[in-house]
Design a protein around this nucleic acid. Sequence first.
RNA 1: GACGUCGUAGAUCAACCGGAAGAUCGCCGGGCUUUCAAUCCGGAGGUUGCGGGUUCGAACCCCGUCGGCGUCACCA
Length: 558
Amino acid sequence: MSDPANKPVVTRFAPSPTGALHIGGARTALFAWAYARGRQGKFTLRIEDTDLKRSSPESTHGIIRDMKWLGLNWDEGPSPHAADPYTEQLGNNGPYFQSQRAEQGIYDHYIKLLLDAGEAYEEDGAVRLKMGSHRGDIAFTDAVYGDIEVKADDLEDFVIRKGEDGGKLPTFHFAVVVDDALMGVTHVIRGQEHLSNTTKHAALYDALAKLTEDDFAWARPTWAHTPSIMNPGGSKMSKRDKAKAARASFIDNNPDKSPGELLSTLKQMKGVLYQRGQFALIDEIDDDMLASFIDKKNDEARIASIIAQAKGLSLPEIEVDDFRNSGYLPGVCLNYTALLGWNPGNDQEKFDLGFLCKHFDFDRVGKANSTFDRDKLKSFNGDAIRAMSAEDFACELADYVKAYRPDWGDHGIFNGDDWQAFCTAVQERAETLPQPLDANGYLIADDDGVEYDFAPKPMRKAMINSDGAGIKLLEELRDAFDGLSEDGFGHAAHEKINELAEAAGINMGKYAQPVRIAVSGGTVTPPLDVTLDLLGKSATLERIDRCLAAAKERLTKT
RNA sequence: GACGUCGUAGAUCAACCGGAAGAUCGCCGGGCUUUCAAUCCGGAGGUUGCGGGUUCGAACCCCGUCGGCGUCACCA
């Protein structure tokens, strides 16, 4: 018998391209990648597209893009940089798309071996492998879960070649085994939902080992199953959660609306996005799809996303692309998900890929499912952001703006010298990339004739109360600011505030808060000197004037 | 339902194959700040799912029980 331990390590990630890359899939890929990289092994990417109805080239492209973003490179598989990954591929064991392998007759060859040997039989055009008493009890050892044994009576014959699609395509069970063997895969790392299926795969390896010359290739690999990632509620994390969240906000909060009214609202939302030019998102979505989404008959993520954008709602991140979109760093996503089920054996939680490659092994992978905790992820992300140099952070945020935030990308702050100053000021309290953007929207607000909202509560506290004491202070400041030059305005203004506060013998906050409210609408901004510098003198004065007017109006009303 | 598997603070995990249950996130309180969701300091939270047993001693070993999850598809 051959011992898989004698072969050079080969692991693989084998997603089916029926959607975007799920965060759980990314963790599985990470473990497989790290295991190979830590042992000078090879890592293969194989696309399991035998389900013709649900597979799509778009999903394949998305998976490749997400793997690249995460930094999980592969030695064999579709070429990561090719315009057409179906034709350009890396490695000598290809092709790496199962649809292509089926066309080459690879699976048929082994089906025939099994059929001829009486290990399998045809039924309704499909081919099934004999199990049960024909094969006996099946036992195997999982590197994570340990010894597993299933009695022959509990094993039923199962389909290895589908009768559908012209009887040409293998099922998942058959294709994985054949491909893993032919590609020299020594360690099969995958989600625990496959643990029970593994008896089928073991049976296939054993049957084919007997029928081929090369029993070295058909020796059973090491299996390592990883626990699932769950939602806080206990359900499995799935892309449907996005639809659920969107519906909860859109439909459940509008119990009085009829389905017809809901549909027309949804159409309007879609129309708004269409005007904004987000065609890719919504191009193929027709009214029927919208209606069935409302009916809970489909969970189309794009419709969920339409609702989220219209209502300013943030959907739960499920797929790798969601996390990128929400402004998480790839290294943090990897670090955090690795921790969901694995640990180095001590209290260390922060580590990079090099550390993981060096220390990862199956004996430290837990068996229990784990709940995905977004708060902890966010905290990790904030720590990682703070650990970056100011320049790196500015680049990172700039890339993010270019990809996702045209509102900032079109603005002077982004394009001029101020960008670094802005980034440096917001870096210390950013937990995600878009957070400082959202928190400082006033910086890119248009001053020309646009109504600016001043938060009522802070305004009352800082300006209206005590007979409008704050208004007088702000007026005083306004006059003082007017005399300052454009150059170095923020710094000078800040000095002025200090001066006046000291002269008047009061806390400088009494002066600073009204200014903060005037320029930002609220009470939280980066340090005032930076904020006012970014805004410039004329915008600052304009906003102070508008704020004074609004405050006086409110004062007379009370 | 059958089979499989898991069960340590609210969450993620530790606890050197039986020897005083710890860390991080979150939560609460305080300090620093002109503001803060940032930062700093401190605190609360565990009959280790539950019930038996073995043992001088059990989170750990044994039996039972409850609960979660997975598979039982011509989806992967």
